[in-house]
Amino acid sequence: MEQFFTTLGIWLGALFTFAIFSFLYKDNPFYKTAEQIFVGLSAGYWFVYTIFFILIPNLYNPLTQDFSANWIKLIPAILGLMMLMRLIPKTEWVSRFPISVIIGTTSGVFFLRYLKSDVLNQLTATMINPFIGDSWVTVIGRLMLIVGTICGVIYFYFSKKHTGALGVSAKIGIYFLMVSFGAAFGYTAMARISLLIGRLQFLLGDWLGIIHP
């Protein structure tokens, strides 16, 4: 029986792979059906995941196992239910209270997190001695790192017109940003091609059995 379901799983996978790839020809009912199945399954997956891995361990289990120690969790539970009131137009305003808790928490957490990780840590990592390196390539690289970071930050300074020294620095900043975007693009392209190779391996290996890993 398990063999049957394994084969069924492979055939389902192959069928949906072809349905999605059919979009390369043109938009068609097979693609649209597969696309909608993907949307539905995705929503269903996150629905179940949220209940089993967020709400049950953080809300249901603490309340049912030791209510007297965890009764305070009733507050976020009520706020969560208030959030669902957004589905009804007349009671939509009720959802502002849980939203304000989420926004307040996010703002507080992000304020500290980004101050530490994205500003202070990055500044600290840039304050290096460029001339301590095992080769001249590293020294050049470190100089580029310092100049690139400073000029890149100058490019994001929009309170003054980018002319004169500021303009030249901002221009150098753009060059570094372009190299960064190019490298990111290259990596993205490679990741997508790697996924495509994975799909072909599935079709030719698991489904047709032509190639063997």
Partner: peptide, 28 residues
């Protein structure tokens, strides 16, 4: 990847970080 890309990414991170800090303060 190690030098010019890191420099560009770092500049974006610092810029975005300062933006997020400003937005968080405005919200609070």
């Amino acid at each position: 990847m190690t030098f010019p890309t890191t420099a560009g990414q770092r500049a974006i991170m610092i810029g975005a970080g300062l933006g997020i800090i400003g937005s968080s303060l405005r919200i609070i």
